[in-house]
Amino acid sequence: AKNPWQPYSGPINNDIEAPEYVFMSLEVEGQEVDFADLLDDDTGPKPALLFLSSDEYTQFRMILIHDQDENFEIVIEGDGFNQPVMTLERFDG
């Protein structure tokens, strides 16, 4: 299978949106996050992850899947203390 992922070459800022063909799931401290639960009409969006000045952060596991090739997924995991680790997983299709 051909790798559908391309490096990001645009500006890095607060308004990055994932392309429509990329699907993301997020687990925080072992629980899957429903992104709709993070939106509040009165107070605005709530954070799913916290990164503290002490370099501690919320334990998480994020999975990115490309809808045109489900043989690849990118997994980003962080234990809350060490630098998050990104891996590319391949599946035989």
Rank of each mutant, 00 (worst) to 15 (best):
D67C: 05
G80P: 08
L64R: 14
D67T: 09
I65Y: 02
D79S: 07
P47E: 10
Q59E: 15
F60D: 09
E73H: 04
T43E: 14
I65R: 15
I65H: 01
S54A: 11
H66D: 14
E77H: 03
G78H: 12
I76W: 01
D69A: 13
P84Q: 01
E56A: 12
V75K: 09
F81L: 13
L50A: 07
Q83N: 12
S54T: 15
G44F: 09
T43I: 14
I63D: 01
S54V: 05
N71H: 12
Q59A: 15
M86I: 13
R61P: 00
P47K: 06
P45S: 14
E70G: 06
G78P: 06
L49P: 06
Q83L: 11
I63C: 03
E70N: 06
L50N: 07
E70W: 08
R61G: 00
Q68V: 06
A48T: 05
I63T: 15
Q59Y: 00
L64P: 05
G78A: 08
D55N: 15
E70K: 13
M62T: 11
Q59W: 00
K46V: 00
E56D: 11
Q68L: 07
M62R: 05
Y57T: 07
Y57Q: 07
M62F: 04
K46Y: 05
F51P: 07
F81Y: 14
D79C: 10
P47I: 01
D67V: 09
D79E: 08
F81N: 11
M86A: 14
V75W: 09
P84S: 03
L64F: 14
A48Y: 02
D55E: 13
S53T: 12
I65M: 12
Q68W: 02
Q59G: 04
Y57G: 08
F81I: 12
S54G: 02
D67E: 14
M86E: 12
T58Y: 03
L50G: 10
F72T: 09
L50Y: 11
Q59I: 07
G44M: 12
E56I: 03
A48H: 02
I74H: 04
M62D: 03
N71E: 13
N71D: 15
Q83A: 11
G44D: 08
D55Q: 15
P84D: 02
Y57V: 04
T58E: 02
L52A: 15
P84T: 02
G80Q: 05
T58H: 08
V75Q: 12
A48N: 07
D67G: 02
G78R: 11
E56V: 08
Q83E: 14
P84N: 00
D55F: 12
E77R: 07
P84G: 00
V85N: 04
V85Y: 00
T58I: 03
Q68Y: 06
F51N: 09
M62K: 12
R61D: 10
E70H: 06
D69M: 04
